[in-house]
């Protein structure tokens, strides 16, 4: 059964067609990459999935329920977690408190005026931090963390309400190559264990080919190819688009080996 069904998604900004008639499905437990050169419409597409942009046309169904027109926070409540291209965390809180906040929100306790927030859901939050190997950092201030750690923290926050679907916008942007591999390996492991479905956008082709089950390629707002890593690598249309964009796939393999 498909977790997500996207049909005919279109969006234009002032006459420029940013996304045009994109359709695809996402199966349970699937790890789907959304790629394309700059300006291909990845981010627009992504923001329509998570409710930040309203498409001109099309539908997005999560387990049969329409997501279009639903506010981002409601989409989250329907079981969709997300991470950001540039990390968004609560900087004045500790690592643990960031995770606790997601749990408090999940249990609909944000209107509580008298309990001590720091004493709530501690065990569950610690176990989430353990899954991303950050238990030792629990009481560190978020503002002191290295960038890669913030990325991992976001992952823990995104997993707090046990989502069915995870949306990750350039999960490895701004990280050192070794960190990228480690983060995506961790994500893949969690996804496999929890039977999550994931859609992520990514610039780094190593990450894409190493971890995705399936790849969707966008160019100028249109879906131009869909398939496994090998299929995409062999696709002449994709080659042409990416060569035009200056990216050469052959080279990336070498980096991954290094």
């Amino acid at each position: 059964m498909n977790v997500l069904e996207v049909r005919g998604l279109s969006k234009s900004f002032g006459g420029i067609q940013a996304v045009s008639d994109v359709s695809f499905d996402l199966g349970e437990g699937e790890f789907l990459a959304l790629i394309g050169p700059n300006g291909a419409g990845k981010t627009t597409c992504f923001n329509m999935l998570n409710g930040y942009l309203k498409p001109d046309r099309g539908s997005v169904k999560l387990g049969g329920r329409e997501l279009i027109g639903v506010k981002p926070r409601r989409i989250w409540r329907m079981g969709v977690g997300r991470t950001f291209q540039i990390t968004e965390t609560f900087r004045s809180m500790t690592v643990l408190e960031n995770v606790q906040m997601a749990l408090i929100s999940h249990h609909r306790e944000t209107g509580n005026l008298f309990s001590r927030a720091t004493r709530m859901h501690v065990d569950k939050a610690m176990s989430l931090l353990e899954t991303i190997s950050m238990a030792d950092y629990a009481n560190r201030a978020c503002s002191e963390l290295a960038y890669g750690d913030l990325k991992r923290l976001e992952l823990a926050v995104a997993l707090a309400h046990e989502p069915k679907l995870l949306l990750m916008d350039e999960p490895t942007a701004g990280m050192a190559p070794s960190e990228r591999i480690a983060l995506m390996a961790l994500t893949a492991e969690i996804v496999a264990r929890e039977r999550l479905s994931v859609i992520f956008t990514e610039h780094d082709m190593d990450v894409v080919f190493a971890h995705s089950h399936r790849i969707i390629v966008l160019n100028r707002g249109e879906l131009i190819a869909e398939g496994t890593g090998d299929e995409i690598r062999a696709n002449p249309h994709v080659q042409e688009v990416y060569l035009g964009g200056g990216t050469v796939f052959e080279n990336t393999g070498a980096t991954a080996d290094a």
């Binding site: 981002p72 409601r74 950001f84 609560f90 809180m93 906040m101 209107g111 509580n112 309990s115």
Partner: peptide, 21 residues
């Protein structure tokens, strides 16, 4: 309290607050 933490969270990052429902 959770309410106070929610306000502080929203002050730190409105996007993150919205993204956790």
């Amino acid at each position: 309290s959770p309410f106070g933490y929610t306000l502080r969270g929203g002050r730190d990052s409105a996007i993150r607050a919205e993204a956790i429902g």
